[in-house]
Nucleic acid binder design. Structure first.
Lengths: 172, 172
DNA sequence: TTGCGAGTTGCAAAAGAATCGCTTCTAGGC
DNA sequence: GCCTAGAAGCGATTCTTTTGCAACTCGCAA
């Protein structure tokens, strides 16, 4: 939105003006993974979505001409293992994926009716993050390793009530 | 262990000496659900387990002579909807079920290697509970209804390291 | 005690998500 | 430009959970 953040600024160094996709690709390379056409496309779709997205939706977003859904599965597994994406869970056990370019953990509220995901407000998220980090430290102190967690909130969203008549999840 | 807590105390009233299974059955009836043989068996198994248990394990615990696994699925869904059981989630999307006879939310640490579940210490659980409740209130204030949450911690447990050579989850 | 009916169960089949095997392809170091 | 380990494509499979439908039974009432 602001001129100074645009790409291709004539004077800017290489580092400053990298697009999110470039950053993600750098992380891939850093982890020793190859930068392939499908992976770039998937990352671009993930970044464009800007919110937790299902593998199926992601695959759909790529267009039928693009890669196999199995590839999306495998990529998400790979990306998750290097921390490039974060996983969010739905009540039915399926999961959504969200790009992670270094920002702190995000917490979500998922609408029970539409599966639409909203982010928790900053204050709540911070309080929660504090509690969770404390617990994870306690666990490490007890001898646990590779500690991680899942936190999801669910509810019928007020927005969801309006959309109740809609057949599917609104796609934008 | 202590004499005064035993059942069948000659002087005790009917209410006091109910077994957990009786309490669970009462909750069933209260919710308008029928008390059937399979349900009682499932509840007994769940109570005996005393920890989050998979549907498959639960079905196995009942013995081959007992009810169909589909019935276990349906019962758990019914029990969960009336709050008689609580659900815990594994990273693979499957879930475990735990009896809920009225105690406050429990939080767990699941071993990444064995899927063995341990309970969080009381202090951590309380801190977490406070944060979570606060967030749920905030959500309700924003218009969300039927608010709920999932919280799970994962890690390689120190106990798990020892059991690493074991083929399956230790069953006791 | 007997009868009735809604709620439950059993069984078989289906649906769906995720994984696996294997061949072919390609990114990227030499 | 060549080579090879890693990645993608495609088909088939596994595993968990759900659904449909007929048969059964709990529990209320006569």
């Amino acid at each position: 939105m602001i001129a100074s953040t645009q790409t291709n600024h004539p004077i800017a160094g290489v580092k400053k003006d990298q697009s999110p996709v470039d950053v993600a690709c750098y992380k891939l390379k850093e982890a020793g993974l190859r930068i392939t056409q499908p992976r770039v496309a998937i990352l671009a779709a993930l970044i464009k979505a800007g919110r937790p997205t299902s593998i199926d939706a992601l695959h759909g977003e790529l267009g039928a001409n693009s890669c196999d859904i199995v590839t999306v599965y495998r990529c998400m597994a790979a990306f998750e293992s290097i921390g490039l994406v974060r996983r969010a869970f739905l009540i039915n056990g399926t999961s959504l994926y969200e790009i992670n370019l270094g920002d702190p953990n995000r917490y979500h509220v998922v609408c029970k009716q539409t599966n639409k995901v909203e982010e928790l407000d900053a204050d709540s998220a911070n309080e929660l993050r504090k509690a969770v980090q404390h617990i994870e430290e306690t666990l490490r102190a007890k001898g646990y390793s590779e500690v991680g967690h899942i936190v999801e909130f669910f509810g019928k969203s007020p927005a969801g009530h309006r959309a109740q008549a809609d057949v599917a999840v609104p796609s934008a």
